[in-house]
Write a protein that binds this DNA or RNA. Structure first.
Length: 569
RNA sequence: CGGAGUGUAGCGCAGUCUGGUAGCGCACCUGGUUUGGGACCAGGGGGUCGAAGGUUCGAGUCCUUUCACUCCGACCA
């Protein structure tokens, strides 16, 4: 394609709403255009990159035996009501009515739809297994869209669903998808990590996330410096710590004025935060608008992991409680504890506090704490893992040191089991002739997010640096001075020759000065350019790689061969 | 939703405190010069100053309401 004919509106200055490198460079390079909060148009360059990333995904999935379909974007709400997610999904689900006043949703993910498709067509175990996927628009009415393509409301996603006759076969497919995803992200040139994850609103058990490592990532992931263990902070676990308890301390109430924080209590009573039972009150929200106050009890030196807390009580969401609500419930902020609590308040205790004694806790009374308390005094405790793993904790696999890093979630695979097939009555006849629900897996890739992730990981202060299989073009030919007939002619010839070879070439034939075109090359970030310029009179052109920007002179007649070698075209 | 901030030409901004002809840089159009690191000269086009209402002889500027966007927290591919 010729640059002079393409719509590539590059910008010298970035619109001020952009803060992340990927957002800034995608806007400045003319890849995307903002149309509203979390909504973007893809311009020719952006569309080309998107297509190439999709091509990689499709090739690998097809090789793994998955089949592509395309599901209706608008989904009848009845499917969602049936699966129970109409409520559970919350406000992110965009709902609307058609002219006949029927309810519809704009699909944020398509488990219901796909289950329905398969339910109508697959009746026997002989038709299994099946892995169907699509690459389609999704819409999630995010609370706070941000970071450009990273968290848009409308986005392109690959979502795949597999159907099996039994658990073992589903696990086989799950492993195959993990391997396939690794191939995809490797081909795209990404530095990523596969981590254990929380299953969130999709449901099911055993899920893994694919995290592109980048400082701007929105997820905190815990990784081991020693082994391959990696997990999202929401699901990370650690080796239990050993504590020596003072079993002789007398259980009593002590006066502790002005000690509403763990540090203050720790200092006042001269006791390590490890031996304080920190009590965090949250409000858990359930279906049907039902809610309750829950006390989460953890060690003073730990912090509550909200996702784990939410899962522990099977809530849709847990939220902070206002001082008034606390007061109304008979709780005293700063002096809460798991003992002597008002009636009917659910108490969840962290696993690490099992058998803890000689502990300090709030007395549920202003300016008072209890000392010498033990966890077996707690009435009806629900023991769960609810704390966040901290840096320098020990790995549960190998005992190695754990540390935090940031990641961008670009893929997520789930072992669903019968989470959807059962309520949606998607069943088949097994070998024994008995009716049985499908055992399912589901697999997602954020396709448009991948563009942002690639740039987050591959850019410098001049602009984008696309990886080989994600770049909108393979090569740019810059004709330094378009008015120089020889330069123009050689540029054209090179362009024709390479195009015929099937190389995606962009010919920068604009009537602009050399520096201007170089700046655009650097901003757009195509991996390589051939500069046809002054050196032409010596029979030479230059090859410049976007990686290092070091020009290499080469005889004009050898350039095609050289590029062939370099890129294995 | 809570907290903070911003809306003036396609983009980046000044002007708002102290009311009096809507400005600058980039981009765009025409002509000319220039041609290896975002050129120069001359001329030109483009704005309901986010929206509505109010105060005033007069509002980008003051008052009220409202909308949008961005940033920090709770959501997720």
């Amino acid at each position: 394609m010729k640059f002079s004919q393409l719509l590539i509106p590059t910008l010298k200055e970035a619109p001020n709403e952009a803060t992340l490198p990927s957002h800034i460079y995608l806007l400045r390079g003319g890849f995307i255009q903002s149309v509203g909060s979390g909504l973007y148009n893809f311009l020719p360059l952006g569309k080309r990159s998107l297509d190439r990333v999709q091509k990689v995904i499709k090739e690998e999935l097809d090789k793994a035996g998955a089949q592509e379909v395309s599901l209706s974007f608008v989904t009848p709400a009845s499917f969602w009501i049936e699966s129970g997610r109409f409520e559970k999904y919350g406000k992110e689900l965009l709902r609307f009515k058609d002219r006949k006043d029927s309810d519809f949703v704009l699909g944020p993910t398509h488990e219901e739809m796909m289950v329905n498709l398969v339910k109508q067509t697959v009746k026997s175990y002989k038709q299994l297994p099946l892995n169907l996927y699509q690459i389609n628009l999704k819409f999630r009415d995010e609370i706070r869209p941000r970071f450009g393509l990273m968290r848009g409301r409308e986005f392109l996603m690959k979502d795949g669903y597999s159907f099996h006759a039994n658990e073992a076969d589903m696990k086989r497919e799950f492993d195959l998808m993990e391997a396939t995803y690794k191939k995809i992200f490797t081909r795209l040139g990404l530095d990523f990590r596969v981590v254990e994850a929380d299953s969130g609103a999709i449901g099911g058990s055993g899920s893994k996330e694919f995290m592109v490592l980048a400082d701007s990532g929105e997820d905190t992931i815990v990784v081991c410096e020693n082994c391959q263990y990696g997990a999202n902070i929401e699901a990370a676990i650690r080796q239990p710590k050993e504590f020596a308890y003072d079993t002789n301390s007398e259980f009593k109430k002590v006066h502790t004025p002005n000690t509403t924080t763990i540090e203050e209590v720790s200092k006042f009573l001269d006791i390590s935060a490890d031996y304080i039972m920190k009590t965090v009150a949250k409000k858990a929200l359930y279906d049907g608008g039902r809610s309750e106050i829950v006390l989460f009890v953890i060690r003073g030196s730990d912090t509550l992991e909200e996702t784990k807390a939410c899962n522990a009580v099977c809530a849709n969401e847990i939220v902070d409680i206002s001082d008034k609500e606390l007061f109304d419930a008979g709780l005293v902020a700063g002096y809460m504890g798991p003992l002597n609590t008002p009636k009917n308040i659910r108490i969840v205790v962290d696993d690490s506090l099992k058998d803890a004694s000689g502990m300090v806790s709030g007395a549920n009374e202003a300016d008072c704490h209890l000392v010498g308390a033990s966890s077996d005094q707690i009435e009806n405790p629900l023991y769960k893992d609810i704390v966040a793993v901290q840096e320098n904790d020990r790995c549960s696999c190998c005992g190695g040191r754990l540390y935090y890093t940031k990641g961008i979630e670009v893929g997520h695979i789930f072992q669903l089991g019968t989470r959807y097939s059962e309520p949606l009555k998607a069943e088949f006849l097994n070998e024994q002739g008995k009716t049985q629900p499908f055992v399912m897996g589901t697999y997602g890739i954020g396709v448009s997010r991948l563009l942002a992730a690639i740039i987050e990981q591959h850019h410098d202060e001049r602009g984008c640096m696309w990886t080989k299989e994600s770049s909108p073009f393979d090569l740019v030919i810059i004709v330094s001075n378009i008015k120089d007939e020889l330069q123009s002619k050689v540029g054209q010839e090179l362009y024709s020759k390479l195009s015929e070879m099937g190389v995606a070439v962009l010919l920068d034939d604009r009537k602009e000065r050399f520096g201007f075109k170089m700046k655009d090359f650097e901003l757009i970030g195509i991996p390589c350019t051939v500069v046809v310029g002054q050196k032409l009179h010596e029979g030479k052109v230059e090859i410049v790689m976007r990686q290092n920007l070091q020009p290499q002179e080469i005889a004009t007649k050898d350039v095609v061969t050289r590029l062939k070698e370099e890129f294995k075209w």
